[in-house]
Design a protein around this nucleic acid. Structure first.
Lengths: 332, 332
DNA sequence: CTGTTAGCGCTTTCAC
DNA sequence: GTGAAAGCGCTAACAG
């Protein structure tokens, strides 16, 4: 069995208090005693039990992460960033996935609460009054990332509205005058449209109102349906598809290739997120860089500030930037 | 503050024992009493503290996962599978990443031990006597996945040696008679060659000994170095690159494209792992399907068996299979 | 059916 | 410098 501090006390003949002083570098202990105790601990392979420690300290030194879905190619970068940054602070990370199911998301959070994690990072697909009410009852600090949930919850992400506007401006400045925005439009089955995607759609509409270009909004379902012909869009070669995320853009790219339509010669293509897969795809997809690792790190840092009693910003928008790959023509 | 069972006892006037019976559906309690207690618990938003529970039960209902590196495109599928399957059993998952650093890997495991997880799944880059000695001292069940570490530790993965032999056979049967195996060959800096990659290399050598074809083993460094010219290999159009993993194959594909070499017309290309990225890449890469999700699930199930006191198999090799994409010519 | 007690491993407080 | 005792939230064992 694993040796406990109590047993070390018994073996060395010192009290539990003294053993604790030795083990945890607390002062008020004779260096000799300390040596002696540490030696025994070492020999017996003593490992502190953080469960016991958590109970008495009221802190578990752990964070919980909830992501709605793991198909999302984003999450591994997010999780990585969170894990490494958390460990810098001595924190560990409970990872849970909600299987794209709002109810399951709540159940994940519940369990994390039961385990008394010190903070919860939620990359949520959930929204709405019920979810808010639920979250507001939780006594553990929560931070939402990437998908905005509610004004009452801290949020870290980017300004998706502005980002799409920037993307459109980039397309227009490159001479594209017919822009097709491809996005999921309505929720189907259980699946909810992510708030980030909603923001992006909103951004596109704002761009439409502000700038001068021909446009259309296409539902992903239609874009990928068997009989969708894209030739109708290829009129003057100044057409570009702007996709609500990279995954959509990559699927579209595959379809275009299959139909013999060349990117960027016949049509421009732009995605959103800059998922790491893009490095393997040709042509290199133009996209909006989402600083997902920074979001993860910032989330952890915000917790640490909060746990240290500092005031934290309620909404943090990190800078995004436009990456022009080779899936767009040069100006012309 | 969060309400405790003790407080509920005080409020309802019942003893802690009775409250416990109500809260945990134990028998030997008057239904009326139970109702009453549950109502109060509900109203006060009682959430059981699993830390307290863990301490007394000696189980934390959590698993730890250690992966050596998150650049590896594999891990998200693995982690997903583990998380979902673990949750089926009411278990939660601590996730840690070792930053490709053997020392850090040990530190991760240490911390998981301190947190008294009930089991640890290690996707390790570490090997060797020191690591073995360390692991053998740990009193918590460990399962290694994908990268074999030692005979003394349970392992779940595939037979990498056989898989490469199958891949070679597939190439030969398709008419390729000159096979270039691309793999990392020597460890450089701190980075260790993964044991799975070592096995695959071994498999290639065995295939060479058994089958009749021309061959070469190429270090990734050389394959990707600026001045590597591949034209020397394209003689009779019956040449194929076989890569130790998909990531290498994809990089190679990019290089080939840049040099104007067509796959599969000029040269065949085959990867290993079947990472999910492949869905976005053309031509569709031929590869060996690694059942990574099954590995994850099986690892969890093995723990559950073990925790239930059952005997578990020490080494489990799950079936792999060959996927012929469009990066190889048809026979002929 | 219900209450009491002891204890999981640790830290903290106060006394010596 | 060191020891003794109490308690974190929970469960288990035994009495009544």
């Amino acid at each position: 069995m694993i040796v406990t501090s109590k047993e070390i006390a018994k073996i060395t003949g010192f009290s539990r208090g003294t053993v604790d002083r030795a083990l945890n570098n607390r002062l008020g202990i004779n260096p000799k005693t300390k040596q002696q105790i540490l030696k025994v601990a070492e020999d017996l392979g003593y490992k502190p039990n953080l469960i016991g420690q958590s109970l008495v300290k009221g802190k578990t030194m752990s964070l919980g992460v909830v992501v709605f879905d793991l198909e999302n190619r984003f999450f591994s970068q997010l999780l990585t960033a969170i894990e490494y940054r958390a460990r810098d602070y001595g924190y560990f990370t409970y990872f849970t996935a909600a299987n794209n199911n709002p109810q399951e998301e709540i159940s994940c959070i519940d369990h994390l609460v039961n385990r008394r994690v010190d903070g919860i990072i939620v990359y949520s697909a959930n929204r709405g009054k019920e979810f808010n009410d639920y979250l507001s009852k939780i006594r553990i600090p929560i931070i939402t990332v990437c998908n905005f949930v509610s004004d009452e919850l801290p949020f870290i992400g980017i300004d998706d509205v502005q980002a799409i506007k920037d993307a459109v401006e980039n397309l227009v400045s490159r001479g594209y005058d017919y822009i097709l925005y491809v996005s999921p439009l309505k929720k189907k089955h259980e699946t909810v449209i992510l708030s980030a995607l909603e923001q992006r759609l909103l951004g596109f509409k704002e761009a439409v109102a502000k700038m001068k270009f021909r446009w259309e909004i296409i539902d992903v379902d239609r874009a990928f349906s068997g009989d969708a012909s894209f030739h109708e869009y290829l009129g003057n070669g100044k057409t570009a598809f702007l996709c609500a995320n990279d995954v959509i853009a990559l699927h579209l790219l595959n379809r275009l290739k299959k139909k013999g339509i060349q990117v960027p010669e016949d049509v421009g293509l732009m995605g959103f997120d800059n998922i790491d897969v893009l490095g393997f795809v040709t042509p290199k997809l133009a996209t909006v860089n989402y600083p997902v690792a920074e979001v993860g790190r910032k989330a952890v840092e915000t917790f640490m500030d909060k746990l240290a009693g500092k005031q934290i910003e309620n909404q943090v928008y990190l800078p995004h930037d436009i990456l022009n790959g080779s899936s767009l023509r040069l100006r012309g």
